[in-house]
Write a protein that binds this DNA or RNA. Structure first.
Lengths: 224, 224
DNA sequence: GCAAAAGTGTTATCCCTACACCCATGA
DNA sequence: TCATGGGTGTAGGGATAACACTTTTGC
């Protein structure tokens, strides 16, 4: 049975695609799926898919991410809408893209839905992707790096409890430079966005580190 | 004759809407049209309309702006995509919104197309708008103000030649505060984005002012 | 006692802010 | 000569950047 939906004027299809970042093995990585259907079958692409007709855009992004990869509860933000003609060989497709950040715990990846395989790729080793997804990744990365400097977005990479050295490590990976330990601590504590948990982590043959948590983990604050 | 376009799955309609700002009579103003068709006939709204099936999104935004208001050659940047269900009573509509900036010259407004009337409104006096257009305006304004502090976006309000006092006036209107003349001049010249034209403007019973132009008027530079 | 990461203050530099007077012109 | 906006420099305060040693633990 094939029902059809008819309109007086031609309508484009609308999809969402998600660039999900995490920090894994001291590198910035992002999640790709191997496409199980045409077009670009067998090629790597961003998780995403078609908007349902009564579904909010953000809901669609989260649903597709969850369906294709099993990942839920990420920080999600709208990135940009790509819509030049012929970006999809099937029909006119407008893609509303999102980028997402997740701590490197809760990661039981499972391929499902349209995805044959799901994998984290280090940002430096991203292959050629289906559609215009390489440009989407580029833009998401620029936005992430820009937001680092004027918001607390990097906290979205942290697990519930973490040490200041771990947090500094995340900033160093993202900014791709060594930071001064004392200056980093002064700066990050002055933001007044993280607090001591009172717990310490002993973690090898050295002094245990004080654990911290984000005071308001739901919010990304604008700083400066 | 009514041709129809049919799809296997339901498709939303896609529109673009544009928030066009200018500075007129020492106030931030934006362009609204009075709707000539249903829904919301007779109410004020943003210029915009349906995407044609082979048309780029940005082209659609510029085309609708031009068709409904006669304005062309503005600085245009994508803002956000609004798409929650029921934001349009007719059918599911995804709106890719843009904001635009224009100098206060070249303004032969003419209502046309779906617009019964076109008018500049001071930002503080915006009426209740059709659809969710008030939230779009709010977001555009926040983005504009934010970009002021880390980019040269304000130059897009300037005509080809201008004095430093005029430029300072634009910043004062946007930031809604008086600025120190000497500090403003030091800062703006240090950006190295404007240059003297060599011309002076004599403009009343006082010393003539040096004219400046934007070195690279096409580009909005990130500063700081 | 040694290896390894945690933790901690001070100084110099740069940038931003505050602030007041003379200049060129037209009437 | 007067009214009007155009044009100019300096000093103080606050934030940022550079920099090295002691502490706590496990083995």
């Amino acid at each position: 049975m094939t029902t059809t939906f008819c309109y007086q004027y031609p309508h484009p299809a609308v999809t969402t695609d998600v660039v999900l970042f995490t920090i894994l093995e001291t590198r910035l990585q992002l999640l790709l799926i191997r496409r199980g259907g045409e077009p670009f079958r067998g090629e790597w692409a961003l998780p995403g898919g078609f908007l349902e007709i009564d579904e909010d855009l953000e809901h669609c992004a989260k649903r597709e991410l969850s369906e294709e990869t099993g990942i839920t509860d990420v920080y999600l933000e709208q990135l940009y809408t790509f819509g030049y003609p012929d970006r999809d060989p099937r029909e006119r497709v407008i893609s509303v893209t999102y980028y997402a950040l997740s701590p490197p715990d809760r990661m039981e990846l499972r391929a499902a839905s349209d995805a044959d395989e799901v994998r984290w790729f280090p940002f430096e080793e991203i292959p050629r992707l289906a559609f215009d997804h390489n440009s989407i990744v580029e833009l998401a990365h620029r936005r992430l790096i820009a937001k680092l400097t004027y918001s607390t977005i990097a906290f979205q990479f942290m697990p519930e409890n973490f040490t200041l050295s771990e947090l500094q490590g995340v900033y160093e990976i993202l900014r791709n430079e060594k930071l001064d330990k004392r200056n980093f601590r002064k700066w990050i504590l002055a933001l007044d966005q993280i607090e001591e948990t009172g717990q310490k982590r002993r973690n090898g043959n050295h002094r245990p580190a004080m654990m911290y948590r984000v005071t308001n983990p739901e919010r990304v604050e604008i700083i400066r």
